[in-house]
Amino acid sequence: MSRTILVVDDSLSMRQMVSHTLEQAGYAVKAAVNGREGLEVAQANAVDLVVTDVNMPEMDGIALVRALRAEPNHRYTPILVLTTESTDTKKAEGKAAGATGWLVKPFSPDQLLKVVTKVLP
């Protein structure tokens, strides 16, 4: 049974890289270009993990995390936040919103897979 991972990022190259890496590792991937679209995909589909960028138009990553935690289906869904900040504020913000973990850009495909394995049940 392959797990489904939702990738939310407004950057096409990032979306491609993350999706491709996850697909190669055997995960099913759904993608969205901003928080609002991501929320819609998560509401309509069974998703085992959400990987989201922070800075996005329409609805940013932090708002998406909050919205997902309010959904009964995603109260406990693991969420990874992709951030460019290595400083603690953004991570703390993400954690406070209910994110499970984070990954600081730049990261390698192997680092991504390692964190994904770590948070997926």
């Binding site: 406990y76 693991p78 954690k95 209910g98 499970t100 770590k118």
Partner: peptide, 8 residues
Amino acid sequence: KDGTNPLG
């Protein structure tokens, strides 16, 4: 509560 999987 925030989706942490301690087994991982």
